[in-house]
């Protein structure tokens, strides 16, 4: 009997032994990635199969219900909304825009995070002090509130500007994570070896350590992306999103403004919410899976290898909450809803 804890009894498809290859076949990793990829393909390949011009206002008869409800037609399988836009076309265009905003924001944030985290963690000294204090201060700033002010002041951002604004708040979390990993990598023997062989600091950081950090960097990217999309949909639902491109969040905004709830046009807000739930849940499960791959200790615990985790208690203070080896996914999201 595997004395599992909670949900964590053996998962179907979970690797049994310690084969190196099987690690990436983590069930959560595959499941989460499939959910996200589903939306990605939907957004990228959708235009090949469906006329996305129908996402323009007044391109279709308004307020048609989905095909399976009375009054629905095959011409608009997911129905239309009050501005005369086809929901399916909106979802295709919106998914692509929303995912792109998230990816750009996360990528930009991660570039900052890698530079600062690597610099701070590896070089130490005053560089590290500056990085640490900056990231610790920045991480407590309520992102959504400041973003609301930013977006309102800019009045009518484009999707790409929105992504860059979001990047302003996606780097601190990732920086802290990468920096703390760097601190633990720095003392490893292969790094000492490289240093003795006369490799430069930059060389060690990017050719020796970076490849070993890839799981953490990817995990940071996934979390940053989830956080960015969450903030983006929040802004958009408040009507502060991009005005030219329809996104999933702006669709919800128009639904709220158009009293879709009161008038029972549930498909107007319900459909984008379904796609967003798929994106968020996918990214979330993916990040847990990545954590298990990057930090096999969590996984091994499952199989009751009790003594695996032996390390002194790390003092945890507010400014060091995510320091130390990553514990089970603590998504930066959850809080920014």
């Amino acid at each position: 009997m595997t004395e599992g804890n909670g949900t964590d009894t053996l998962l179907p498809g979970a690797p049994e032994g310690g084969q190196r290859r099987a690690v990436w076949l983590n069930f959560k990793l595959v499941a989460g990635a499939s959910m996200v990829l589903l939306v990605v393909f939907f957004g990228l390949l959708g235009p090949l199969f469906w006329n996305t011009k129908l996402a323009d206002p007044a391109s279709s008869p308004p307020n048609l219900p989905p095909i399976w409800e009375a009054g629905g037609t095959g011409a608009h399988p997911l129905g239309t909304e009050s501005l005369g836009r086809d929901i399916l076309a909106l979802l295709i265009v919106g998914s692509e825009a929303t995912l792109r905003v998230g990816a750009i924001a996360a990528a930009a944030g991660l570039v900052i995070a890698v530079v600062l985290g690597f610099g701070g963690g590896y070089l130490g000294g005053w560089v590290d002090d500056v990085v640490r204090v900056l990231a610790d201060s920045w991480v407590t700033i309520p992102a959504l509130a400041v973003l609301v002010v930013l977006a309102a002041a800019l009045q009518g951002v484009t999707a790409d500007t929105e992504a860059l604004l979001l990047a302003l708040f996606s780097w601190p979390e990732a920086t802290r994570m990468i920096r703390s990993q760097m601190l633990s990598m720095r003392g490893r023997s292969y790094v000492k070896m490289a240093r003795l062989s006369g490799v430069s600091s930059a060389g060690i950081m990017f050719t020796e350590i970076l490849p070993n950090m890839i799981p953490y960097v990817v995990a940071s990217f996934v979390r940053a992306m989830a956080g960015a999309i969450m903030a983006a949909t929040g802004l958009e639902a408040l009507g502060l999103g991009p005005t030219q491109t329809p996104t999933l969040g702006t669709t919800i905004y128009y639904a709220i403004q158009g009293s879709a709830l009161l008038r029972g046009i549930w498909w107007w807000w319900g459909m984008p919410v379904v796609v967003l739930v798929l994106i968020f849940s996918g990214l979330f499960i993916l990040s847990i899976g990545l954590d298990e791959v990057a930090n096999p200790r969590i996984k091994r615990y499952r199989y009751r290898v009790r003594r695996a985790g032996r390390r002194p208690a790390v003092p945890v203070t507010a400014s060091a909450v995510s320091a130390g080896p990553a514990t089970v996914a603590t998504p930066s999201v959850g809080t920014e809803q």
Partner: peptide, 8 residues
């Protein structure tokens, strides 16, 4: 509902 924004 962990991964989903509260307003949804």
């Amino acid at each position: 509902f962990t991964a989903v924004p509260s307003f949804m």
